Amino acid sequence: MRTISSDVAVRLYHLDEGEGGAASTLLYGTLAEALTLAAEQPEDIQAGLFLQTSNDVVAYLDLIEE
């Protein structure tokens, strides 16, 4: 993921592999808000979380492990 600031607009969504890959949006907001909300989710949900900017998508767990 490219370097971005904490106030960039993102979409936080959950990709549920068990329901045919259905994506459920949890938040449209800033990166800071999305990271806070993602951290509050249970581990099994975190595994399917993704952050999307206008030009990139990254798995939440990949982002926090860097």
Rank of each mutant, 00 (worst) to 15 (best):
Q41I: 10
L26N: 05
S24W: 08
G21E: 14
V58L: 00
L37D: 03
S54H: 08
V8Y: 06
R11Q: 09
A22H: 08
T3C: 04
V8N: 03
D16E: 10
T25W: 05
S6Q: 13
G20A: 07
L15H: 11
T30A: 15
T53F: 03
L35H: 07
F50G: 02
L15S: 11
D7F: 01
D62I: 09
N55E: 07
Y28H: 08
A9M: 14
F50T: 05
S24R: 15
S54R: 13
L12F: 00
L12S: 01
H14Y: 10
L31P: 00
A39F: 08
L49H: 07
T53K: 05
A32C: 13
R11Y: 02
A22W: 04
Q52A: 15
T3F: 06
S5Q: 13
T30L: 14
Y28K: 04
L63F: 14
E33P: 09
Y28C: 06
L26F: 04
E43I: 02
L31N: 02
Y60A: 01
Y13A: 05
L37Q: 13
A32W: 10
Q41A: 14
Y60K: 04
F50R: 09
Q46A: 11
F50A: 12
A32G: 08
Y13D: 02
T36L: 03
R11D: 02
G48W: 09
D62V: 07
T3Q: 07
A39T: 02
Q52V: 10
L12E: 00
E43R: 10
T30N: 05
L51D: 01
G29Q: 11
L27M: 02
G21M: 15
G20K: 13
D44V: 10
A32I: 04
T25S: 06
N55Q: 11
L31H: 06
T36E: 08
I45C: 03
D56F: 13
V58K: 02
L35D: 03
A22M: 12
V8M: 07
D62R: 11
L61Y: 00
L26P: 00
A39V: 07
V57C: 12
L49E: 09
L27V: 01
H14G: 04
